[in-house]
Design a protein around this nucleic acid. Sequence first.
DNA 1: AGTGAAAAGGCTTTAAC
DNA 2: GTTAAAGCCTTTTCACT
Lengths: 161, 161
Amino acid sequence: MTENEQEIGKSFDIYDLHILRILLKDSRTPLQEISKEVGLSTTSCWNRIKKMTDSGAIQSYTVKVDLARIGYQDTVIVQVTLESHSEETLYEFGRALESIPEVLEALLISGDYDYFIRIAVKDTRDYERLLRERLYKIPGIRHSKSSFVLRTLKKVETPLD
Amino acid sequence: MTENEQEIGKSFDIYDLHILRILLKDSRTPLQEISKEVGLSTTSCWNRIKKMTDSGAIQSYTVKVDLARIGYQDTVIVQVTLESHSEETLYEFGRALESIPEVLEALLISGDYDYFIRIAVKDTRDYERLLRERLYKIPGIRHSKSSFVLRTLKKVETPLD
DNA sequence: AGTGAAAAGGCTTTAAC
DNA sequence: GTTAAAGCCTTTTCACT
């Protein structure tokens, strides 16, 4: 495959999408079963999976972990506005968040608040400790607002699920 | 052993956590390699993985997909307040969101807004179409506010990554 | 791109310690 | 907890359409 083809990223056909759906549900599904489901030979399925993996469409094989089972019962969404909007401040802020394991996600967004931060916490005490000892120690925060996640109505990784 | 590890430690010790980290990074890592890395026999690693899978700590084996590569270039965060806070309204709202593939996540939260919704969109036109034709068709929305994700500073699935 | 069949490698179980 | 070994299943390669 040429660089050009990789960069453009040829769109997937129905077979690729079908394979992706199967792998999303269970990445250990045997090729024989995938083959039977999508109606192609095992080799063909294997080649398509390899192509998607090599091109980066499939970024990695991983496991889905139940956060509550490893001690993180709650999720908090923190919205933050920074005092400065310079690229340097943004970079420093990102670097600081990167070093906090409980920060699962940090998004630079448009609108009233500058950042959306998702934090995994063990309980409300852990949340208080995290904000006080870690997050608010980061310089440059002008304003912040926390929202506890009370219930998860839906959570999928892709529109394909 | 830290306090954290002790609390989980009834069912999880440092070896389990080490194995989990490896599987999170690459769930296809051969048992022999896992065994070498954590310093336990392959049989022991296998038993621990089986235990974590059976107990639900490992919910599933899956693939991480690059959303941009399958056509979804942007992410939008929509915060929504409903007119009613009854359990029935909440249920209906959740059900409506469930049927929209582009809605990747819907969280009931504390604070000014009732819901935090994450939507994968192909482009700004797709976003406009989705909100107008799908989201705003759901009855009971009092107020909503959209924020485009301009940049992802950090994204991990667990504090273990 | 697709196929079938053979070869290579890892998973899983069992057994003995 | 450990090692070792066997059988089975899957992945991967190969020759070919």
